[in-house]
Design a protein around this nucleic acid. Sequence first.
DNA 1: TCTTTCTTCAAACGATTGTTTAAATAATCT
DNA 2: AGATTATTTAAACAATCGTTTGAAGAAAGA
Lengths: 223, 223
Amino acid sequence: MVSPSITTRANGQETKARLLRTTETLFASKGVAGVTMRGVAEKAQTNLASVHYHFGSKEAMVLEMIQSKIEPINSKRRKRLDEAKVKFADKPLPNIEIFRALIHPVGEEVEKQITNQNGIIEIISRSFTEPAEFLDKIQKRFFGELSQVFMTELKKSNPNANEEDLYWNYHLAVSSMLGTLAQHRRMIDFSVGKYNQNAVSAMIDRLIIFVSNGFEAGIQIKQ
Amino acid sequence: MVSPSITTRANGQETKARLLRTTETLFASKGVAGVTMRGVAEKAQTNLASVHYHFGSKEAMVLEMIQSKIEPINSKRRKRLDEAKVKFADKPLPNIEIFRALIHPVGEEVEKQITNQNGIIEIISRSFTEPAEFLDKIQKRFFGELSQVFMTELKKSNPNANEEDLYWNYHLAVSSMLGTLAQHRRMIDFSVGKYNQNAVSAMIDRLIIFVSNGFEAGIQIKQ
DNA sequence: TCTTTCTTCAAACGATTGTTTAAATAATCT
DNA sequence: AGATTATTTAAACAATCGTTTGAAGAAAGA
């Protein structure tokens, strides 16, 4: 028989999606330790074993959820970088354009969520305040290759800079970005009551300026 | 068994110190989740229940250990700030002096440890890659009051700056510092084989420049 | 010495965790 | 339809954790 689209049975894919959403919520509010197989199963209104059936393990489930959240951002990062290259027509990019391509997509993703339930910011934030073994996996998986792309671009834009300086300050820039995202909840204490999506956007814009200026101050010209 | 020691008995205080050192080692290498009461007891060659006897709970034990590591750094931070005030004789401090007082003591503490076993950097790093509930306690306990001191000083040094800009960029600076310390292991990938205490010192110096320049770029002058 | 206090010990408690098993149910295919 | 596959279910497994208990041991005070 046909018409598989009209029939809306609980065909596993739907359950899986429901499990991922639940994982998202739990992870955003309590981190990886707060994601328990039983908790996910219960909140997603299914059985404990079916969670293993769909993902194989807890770690695989959480990583798949994180991937679904970070991948779109990384795509935008590459896209933004490419657009900037076109715009500047093979001339070396200003550093701030490179860091904008790296950082701004995070803000865009935040704004995309009208119903700002389990914010992407919370996901990212939690991702970088997790026990180290977990964190390492995330970094290698979602940040390794991307870093090389951006590092290459920074070299092009700063051909006369000491290479060691470039590496160090790129490291500082990325660490600052991650640290700021991870620490974003501290902001709530500052901007009492005013914490919203605009506040996040403002933070992102400020972060870009902060980071690119810090970066440029740190690289010295050869000779 | 035999002649435990010529000098003293195992009088509790000694056991407690031994437990704290063990906690240090485990925490530095595996984080708070890697600190198990049984593991600590075993490595410290004492009994499980005696760990509770000395600390009351696991959390209290870990926090006491962290406190013993962070307190000296915070003392140095205040001292450095006071010294700078004296040096500049009531004139407003350059921002970089303020950030140097905030950040440099971390590097000093690293250099102090000749036998660089469970480095202070690892402790701090782990402290900021822990589940959020734990992290919040650490931040409030070891960073709340200190932040106000430094914020006040920044206001004095930038009397014409927009106060909102000051808050935001101080937040960015602190987050960058914490993020960099937390992410320090990424450096190992960069400086293969060359990762040592000098590398940490170099990182600290670069971080100070990075942060103070990022900060200054972010604050705009009123009118 | 006797007594009191501090410290250590073995053992169990109680709760939670990720994972696996094997049977039951639902959907799909021939 | 029947056979096959995909999914869900209840139940148990196995391991780990922080904590508590009550008694034994050691040090210090009287």
